[in-house]
Design a binder for these strands. Sequence first.
DNA 1: TATTGTTATACTCTATAACTATA
DNA 2: TATAGTTATAGAGTATAACAATA
Lengths: 175, 175
Amino acid sequence: MASKTPSTEGPAPEGLLLPVPGLAYGVLDQLLGYALRRAQNALYLDFYRAIAQQGGPAEVSPQRFAALVLVANNPGMRQGLLAQAMGLHRSGALRLTDWLTEQGWVERRDDPADARSWGLHLTAAGRRALSKLEQAVRAHDQALLLGLGERGAGLKTDLERLAWVATAAQTNRAG
Amino acid sequence: MASKTPSTEGPAPEGLLLPVPGLAYGVLDQLLGYALRRAQNALYLDFYRAIAQQGGPAEVSPQRFAALVLVANNPGMRQGLLAQAMGLHRSGALRLTDWLTEQGWVERRDDPADARSWGLHLTAAGRRALSKLEQAVRAHDQALLLGLGERGAGLKTDLERLAWVATAAQTNRAG
DNA sequence: TATTGTTATACTCTATAACTATA
DNA sequence: TATAGTTATAGAGTATAACAATA
């Protein structure tokens, strides 16, 4: 490895990433990966709009939303498991949990099975917040599916398969 | 807007973001957006592997690769245009250009039409580097398409459409 | 000895604001 | 007065390493 292993660096799409008329994109136009990046960028930005518009609290990133959903659906889950599920380091899951706790949405309770661990639980306020957020996110997603027409359903399946293929490629190459 | 407009915040997927067996994902499993995030995450990580494996210089992120391609295909393009094409602030394009220049891949020349601007150009080394990188990236992308079978081609089209739909949704909502 | 969570720190990427020089 | 690029700085997000408590 040339230097520090950039393996887990962040991509961080930012502003709108759209084709600029008159610009030549070369290979990029042919790459599935670039099309994926553009789509992800657009959805990411739209996610915030959807939440803000709905009156939901800003600062709820897709990641924070995902964490809230996971805790809601897996009451008592450990922080470390949250980290694993979200592809984060333990310290990252800590920050995430801190933030959710500061919002009053999540609670750390003692884990009866292991005194080192926390069990994460939604508070009543967390359930209310999630309910609103989930509604907004669902509507947002539905609108996209609608815009895609009949291909929408297949797209989701294809993306899941793509994630699988890319991961398998990694495993093969690494292992 | 509720607070500071998080509009252009970075998502920064990190480690591998895969379904953890036994964990309940709730809505996430139903969301196109989450499937997209997972796919993007997997491809992003695989991109580095593909480049590193091919012997290419590490630290070449998808973004840096894209910038290199853009400069190659639009000789003399201004930094500001690069920023626009990549959804970045001017200062971000500056850093990006600085890095490419440090690698000896890109050169800033005076823009004959506007003394305030630079014209960005690939160096000979840049052309060589791009040639190697492009080969690796193309192979990487091809492997993914292959893994997807007949749905691969359609997927790219669908993603482009999805980006368009999400962007239109934003514009409608904002405007 | 390994694991869970924490703390402190550093690194990367991005944006904002103020500045220079051109237009 | 507006634009291109720069500089300096701040902010969000992540990782690393060392530590305490527990397994």
